[in-house]
């Protein structure tokens, strides 16, 4: 019993080390390994500890974990900690098949990145930026700090929580979360927040004001922008955004191409004296 107790304190220490190392996972990002070196570096405390008496197995473990890796980093710690727990098992059980480790890793990277990118890149970062930009536009020094705090506190909390979870519950837990549909509920709630925020930001940040006027004789004037506004306020911004969205998602138009197209559009509108 006392032995088991001491084991878990060591694991706790190793896990903390994994957590801190995981911050650097994509530091030397490149097309050969992406986060491979960072993954290996993050779980190295476990490899060093559990294979310390077996240099051959240690080499095998390092080789196994230096392979290509990419998952959104603040949720990827789940995969790291899970792999760490599997490496530990491998070092203790003779009949453990180490091939299962990379198979597991490969199967989790996609789903974790899908949810992680949406939550952190698509939603949390946008919410944080939306709040902070109001301050920045007024020249308030608080802007960058608000942005960093609103983004990083949940991000770091999630990173730590998933580190612990990955090591203790194993992959079964995630499978159950998927099977029970809980993941869908969470994603849907987050998407609701994200869409409301994106709608608000489209309205406040995509701007267009037409300067086109027609003189109808006498003191009668036809102002294009007034007509547009009376149809729907922000008609051009929301239409343009949705057209871009349609082109990006349905027509698979390249992001860069779209950027260049909008620049050309803006200059054309100006040359034609529409805006």
């Amino acid at each position: 019993m006392s032995k088991e107790q001491s084991m878990s304190t060591i694991d706790k220490k190793l896990l903390k080390s994994l957590f801190f190392r995981s911050f650097t996972v994509f530091a030397p990002f490149n097309y050969a390994k992406q986060g491979g070196s960072g993954f290996c570096y993050s779980i190295m405390p476990f490899i060093n500890h559990y294979y310390k008496n077996d240099s051959e197995k240690k080499t095998e473990a390092l080789t196994r974990n230096i392979v290509w890796y990419n998952a959104t980093q603040n949720v990827g710690t789940f995969i790291m900690a899970l792999v760490a727990s599997m490496e530990k098992e491998n070092s203790q059980k003779e009949d453990f098949n180490p091939d299962a480790i990379n198979a597991m890793k490969a199967s989790l990277m996609g789903p974790f990145s899908g949810i992680g990118d949406t939550l952190f890149w698509g939603i949390l970062r946008v919410v944080a930026a939306g709040i902070a930009m109001t301050f920045g536009a007024q020249g308030s020094i608080l802007a960058p700090f608000i942005f960093l705090i609103v983004y990083n506190v949940p991000s770091i909390a999630c990173r730590w929580y998933l580190t612990k979870l990955g090591f203790s519950v194993g992959s079964k837990y995630i499978e159950e979360m998927y099977a029970s549909g809980l993941i869908n509920v969470l994603t849907k709630a987050a998407s609701t927040l994200g869409l409301i925020m994106l709608g608000g930001m489209t309205s406040s940040l995509v701007t267009f004001k037409s300067t086109l006027k027609f003189n109808l004789g006498g003191d009668q004037q036809l102002v294009l922008q007034d007509i547009l506004d009376s149809i729907f306020k922000g008609l051009v911004p929301i239409s343009l955004t949705l057209i871009c969205f349609y082109l990006l998602s349905k027509k698979k138009v390249n992001f860069t191409v779209l950027i260049v197209a909008v620049i050309v559009l803006g200059i054309l509108l100006s040359l034609l004296h529409i805006a």
Binding site: M201, T202, L205, V206, T207, F208, K209, P237, L240, T241, C244, I259, V262, I263, L265, G266, I267, L269, S270, A275
Partner: peptide, 8 residues
């Protein structure tokens, strides 16, 4: 004008 439209 582009500055206003590009965020779209």
């Amino acid at each position: 004008v582009c500055g206003g439209l590009l965020p779209a």
